[in-house]
Design a binder for these strands. Structure first.
Lengths: 151, 151
DNA sequence: GCCATATTGTTTGATATCAAACAATCCCGT
DNA sequence: ACGGGATTGTTTGATATCAAACAATATGGC
């Protein structure tokens, strides 16, 4: 498809872009999620709260897909959250294999507390980029992430 | 600094950009690192091989910083790699607390095998973006990641 | 030179995560 | 109907990861 030389060049460019993407995501993530410890929330737990709050009740499988974790892990995460009274499992009447995961009042209150702080921190972290740049970053990342998962 | 309305707008933009960044990094990472399992390498182990191969011998602390993991974890990762004969710990003559981590011949051979495949996969994954876009993505991510770590 | 403080690597205990195997249930083609 | 394959959630066993406490060594101020 390409000559060896041009191939090396595109490899270097792709590797560089990928490394920068991975490192920036990881270091920004560390900075953004630092404050969650104050609420004894893990990143996964926060992801679950956020999804349930914004989307409404979901099955465990949908939750797992949303936060990109395995279903086995989701069982574990939800067990911990249920113990703390943040979520409630409710049998799905339409499918007796499935459960609907609901936010409890306590979970709703917590996410209403945490989310504004979260948004503020994200805004601050991203504010190094101007509006146009944030749009462009979002566009490029969406394109990348949307690569076909199952052909 | 801003009116409430504009604040909500910038919050939404920042949150959107951040979510897309995080999700694309995670899903691309999964796709890129799938092939490492064939070599019984974890992502951290591959990161160590890569760093040592391209930079030369490094202390555990530098390695930990390079792959963004804790030093405690680095001890664990290196123990596993040492058991497999991929790296060798060598006392640093200038600082008796520190060790220099070296690639063994076996480790060098392995990374020479794995790296070209890795580069190829990364190139393929990133090829959804054209050259200009990859440059731009790299630039934006570098800016984001470079945010001051310790003030 | 000596001591307080910092840095390096290790240990330890607690979580998080995954993959694989599993049971229960659903669904579709015949 | 119904039987085989798909889907949902759980369990299990193995790893990975972190934070915190620790021991050994280095370093800089006095």
């Amino acid at each position: 498809m390409e000559t060896g030389d041009s191939r090396e060049r595109t490899d270097r460019l792709a590797l560089g872009a990928w490394v920068k993407l991975a490192r920036s995501a990881e270091s920004v993530s560390t900075r953004i999620h630092g404050h969650l410890a104050a609420y004894r929330l893990t990143v996964s737990q926060f992801g679950v709260l956020e999804a349930l709050y914004h989307v409404g009740p979901l099955s465990q499988r949908s939750l797992a897909r949303k936060i990109l974790k395995s279903t086995g892990n989701m069982t574990h995460v939800l067990n911990n959250m249920e113990k703390r009274g943040l979520v409630r499992r409710q049998p799905d009447p339409k499918d007796r294999r499935a459960v609907e995961v609901h936010l409890t009042r306590k979970g709703t209150q917590l996410v209403r507390n945490v989310f504004p702080r979260h948004a503020e921190i994200v805004r601050r972290e991203m504010s190094i980029l101007n509006t146009t740049e944030q749009h462009e970053l979002g566009r490029l990342c969406r394109k990348l992430g949307l690569q076909t998962k199952e052909p």
